[in-house]
Structure formats: structure tokens, C-alpha cells
């Protein structure tokens, strides 16, 4: 039997979230005494045998013209074929945009229970129980999957990528691949060099910045930290920043290692989207801002004075002049 891990890629490169999923799935396989096998649909520029470094023993690749764009219906049927042939009892996705489109469909086809947004390894001592975030990160739930086949979508940044020695065996899988029913007619990259949901460090700013013209210093800080940019809901609603930078309960939920919030008061709805960050730094001139209660480090002060100083200090630490 196998634990099958779906490997997602973009522009020919495997996504970081999928390396987390691979490491997580391999760990489950160790736990259950199964083999960790990965599945790649389409072509990637990277050497797939290197997935062995994350604990994968075997990689199944399906190459087909119909897989050039992600059509969840088409992908689901291909994954079903691989899952059946490899006898997969546990299937792992990253809970990213691709996983969110495919995992629920596959769950129906395989009549498999799905836990979307897992944040820890399953407990198999009494059934199959997985911890996931609920109430937008304000609580968690232990979910039992009661079906024979189990599907887990792992939250981004919830499991550390494992790096060790290992080479995976690569094998081509011949699958029946349907013609897509959707047509991708264009794509746009959002501003910023780092994808928000995949970023290790996120620099976020709110109404305290007073206007969109003041974002330059925030961008500079993000730039030298290699961070993604985010903002609070009022900022996106006022069109100071694009809506895809809005993090919070009704925007994007993120879990970076470091979240720096500048001029954001920290309303409960904002916290719900960022409270899974490992370390939170808050800069706000209002000492009573609720965000300080959720922060690890804070400075009570004016963003317009503090941020330029932060930029200088980071440059010093990083040795950038």
C-alpha cells in the first residue's frame, strides 16, 4: 500500500507547498509502514528523482498535452487512476489553490473522507485523527476520517520540509486523460516578487500609513527581507492596495514564519487570518491597539519614523549597504 502525494508545480518548478506535502506524506508512510509515492501531472524542469530527498520512494509522472492547464475534472480522474493502481489508502495534497480545486472532487470519486487544512500528522493510535484549524485559526478541531480511503490537504507552512539523502525512482504512468472543459485564456502575476501564501516573511501595513503614496518604505522593507506584501481590509477596500494583498478572515489566511504588521490595529477579523504566523511583530503608535496582545514583539511608535529605521537595521544585519 502507499501514501500518495500530489505534487503541484508552476512554470516548471515544484511548489514549496508540495515539498511540505511530500515531507508530510513520507512521515505518515513511515508511521503506517506504507511506501511514500508521489504523483506529478505534466512536465517540470526539475529532476523528479530529487523528491527522494524529502522521503519519496517512487514518483509517478503522467505526461499528456491535456494536462498543460489545470482542469480539476481532468486531473481528478487521472489521480483516481493512479490511486487505484498504486493501492493508495492515504492521499495528500497541499491545501493551496490547486489542492482546493481537486481534493474535494477526488474525495467524492473515491468516497474518501477529506480533512482540508490539516496542521499536524495524523494520530493513528485509535482510528485516524487529524488536527485542523477551524474558526479561522481561532480554534482547532481533531477530525476523524471514518472512510477506508483518506485524503488530507495540508495547510501551507504547517509542516517543515525534510531534507535528507535519497533518490526516488521515476516511472511514467499511462493514464486515460480527458480533454479539458475549461480554457485558460490568460494569467497575471500579482505585484511583489514573493507569492503571499508561500512566503516565509510577510510585511503588512494598514490605515496607519495614511495613504497609498506612503507604501514605498513598506515595499523597501519587504524587498530587503525577501518578504511578500500584505495589507488590512480597510486598505484593500479603499483601493490603496490590490484586494489580493488583503489578509484576514475574509481575505487570505496566511501562516508565515514572520509577520510584521505596520499601522494595523489588529481587529479580531484581521487576527483570524494571520494568527498562525510563528512570530508576529507589531508597529503601532497606539499602545492600546489590540494587536499587541497577539504579538511576540512590538514597538509603540510612529510608522513613519520606525520603518526607515527598521530598513537601516535590517541592512546592517544582512550586510547590505
Amino acid at each position: 500500500m502507499s501514501v500518495l502525494i500530489f505534487i503541484d508545480h508552476i512554470d516548471g518548478h515544484i511548489k514549496k507547498a508540495s515539498l511540505e506535502a511530500a515531507s508530510y506524506g513520507a512521515k505518515i508512510a513511515e508511521q503506517t509502514g506504507d511506501t511514500a509515492e508521489a504523483l506529478v501531472l505534466g512536465n517540470v524542469n526539475e529532476d523528479l528523482t530529487t523528491l527522494g530527498r524529502h522521503g519519496i520512494k517512487k514518483v509517478h509522472q503522467v505526461q499528456h498535452d491535456n494536462l498543460k492547464q489545470i482542469d480539476a475534472q481532468v486531473y481528478t480522474k487521472v489521480i483516481e487512476q493512479v490511486a487505484q493502481q498504486t493501492g493508495a489508502k492515504i492521499i495528500v495534497f497541499s491545501n493551496n489553490s490547486t489542492g482546493k480545486a481537486i481534493a474535494p472532487r477526488l474525495a467524492v470519486r473515491l468516497k474518501a473522507g477529506l480533512v482540508a487544512g490539516a496542521v499536524a500528522l495524523p494520530d493513528t493510535t485509535n482510528g485516524f485523527v487529524i488536527r485542523k484549524n477551524v474558526f479561522s485559526g481561532k480554534a482547532f478541531a481533531y477530525m476523524a476520517i471514518t472512510s477506508e480511503i483518506k485524503i488530507i490537504s495540508l495547510n501551507l507552512n504547517a509542516f517543515t520540509i525534510v531534507e535528507k539523502e535519497g533518490v526516488a525512482e521515476l516511472s511514467q504512468f499511462n493514464a486515460v486523460v480527458d480533454v479539458p472543459t475549461i480554457k485558460v485564456t490568460g494569467s497575471t502575476k500579482t505585484t511583489g516578487k514573493v507569492a503571499l501564501t508561500e512566503a516565509d516573511v510577510v510585511v503588512s501595513a494598514g490605515r496607519g500609513l495614511k495613504g497609498p503614496e506612503n507604501w514605498k518604505m513598506v515595499e523597501e522593507l519587504a524587498d530587503i527581507l525577501g518578504a511578500a506584501l500584505a495589507c488590512s481590509r480597510p486598505v484593500a477596500d479603499a483601493h490603496w492596495r490590490p484586494h489580493n494583498e488583503h489578509v484576514g478572515q475574509t481575505g487570505i489566511a496566511i501562516a508565515p514564519n514572520l509577520y510584521i504588521a505596520i499601522g494595523i490595529s489588529g481587529a479580531i477579523q484581521h487576527l483570524a487570518g494571520v494568527n498562525r504566523s510563528k512570530v508576529i511583530v507589531v508597529v503601532n503608535k497606539d499602545a492600546e491597539a489590540p494587536f499587541f496582545k497577539a504579538a511576540d514583539y512590538g514597538i509603540v511608535g510612529d510608522a513613519f519614523e520606525i520603518v526607515p529605521k527598521m530598513i537601516e537595521a535590517v541592512k546592517k544585519v544582512k550586510g547590505i549597504s
Binding site: A139, I145, N275, D296, G298, I299, V300
Partner: peptide, 24 residues
Amino acid sequence: LTKVVEFGLPPVKAGVKLVSPDQV
């Protein structure tokens, strides 16, 4: 196909470490 076994609340943060604005 799934069911909740138990809910829980995340651990409370240890508390913020405040740094003076003169000591960025």
C-alpha cells in the same frame, strides 16, 4: 465521512516583548 472528535483553543501567547522606539 469525517467527524469532529474534539475542539481546542490555541495556546495563549506568552506576551509581547516591547522594544523602545529609539531602539529599532
